[in-house]
Amino acid sequence: MKGKNSAGLIALILAVILLPYIITNDYYLGALIFAGLNSLACIGLCMLMGYAGQISIGHGAFVAIGAYGSGILTASFAWSPWLAMFCSLIMAVVVAIVLGIPALRLKGHYLAMATLGFASIVHVVSVAAVDLTGGPSGIVNIPRPKLFGYLLQTDTQYFYFVWAVVIIGIYCAFNLIDSRVGRGLRALHGSEDAAASLGIPVTWYKVQVFILSAVYASVSGSLYAYYVNYIDPGPFDISYSVLLVTMVAVGGLHNIWGALTGAIVLSLLPEFLSFVSDYLRFFGIEYQQDYDTLVYGLILLFIMLFLPEGIFPSLRGAVAGIIALFKKTPRMSGQNSGPIAGRRFSGHDK
């Protein structure tokens, strides 16, 4: 792990520890828990899309597998939540292998459509397999897990729990990126032929990172089920898969921090919009929650047209600029710290 990634991770840990002291409102804490759940799925997706260069518009399906696996095994079969989570994770791995081996031979548009089709099938099954999934009415009475003997009952506890998992996820992702395997993944993104000529089993590597991203998504789904205590097919239609891609793309595809930024920003966007809508009403504009979809679409389009690297690089540039501004002394005139800091950042992260 590179120095500033460790620094970022420590900053994140501190922020997570402090946040519940600042935000005492359970509603906003809940929003941050959902942000954490989306972040987890997005970190996995970012490794698949940003680092290995393989698109998937079907990861909502793996979240659904995690959620339904955990929901069914705990609520209907009274398994321990941990065991249920592990078993649904294994199921996600198996599905990722079965889907990934044929699908990852496809490229670009074809891969995108195949994964989207897969997500659609999973959604149809979740609605139609009433005996297993409860159909449209879903599954209720999913328990919270216990950790070290404590039931994760309050939102504050669950907030710490979810974000601890997110931090572990980021930690693993950074370790992987700067390893033999991670370099292999980035290499096949750059040139599949060259990667193969250096001995990297290209297809197997794509399948491996697909599996890994499915694991992240599945854990996110399990934790979601345990948090809300009931699940139905509603949240897992293909627009959720599209939303995950949107989060990663808006934040910045080529960087784990970007995916995290995108996930947090877009997860909190509805809260922000409902907050803003009070002010808009003051100006005579009636904003309804139904317009959220439109706003998401416009943000995504704007980012793709004007900031194709996502908002994170710009954000980082701005932060570096501010730091440079503070460091600026009359003699050095900021030239040393500003641009060089910026260059060092952009050189490493890709």
């Binding site: 698109i55 949107t246 679409g297 995504l300 389009l301």
Partner: peptide, 18 residues
């Protein structure tokens, strides 16, 4: 390819929202 895919997805989200 990725950028174009996401752009057409964005258009579909916008159309749907509208």
């Amino acid at each position: 390819v990725l950028r174009l895919i996401i752009i057409t997805i964005a258009v579909s989200i916008i159309t749907k929202g509208a």
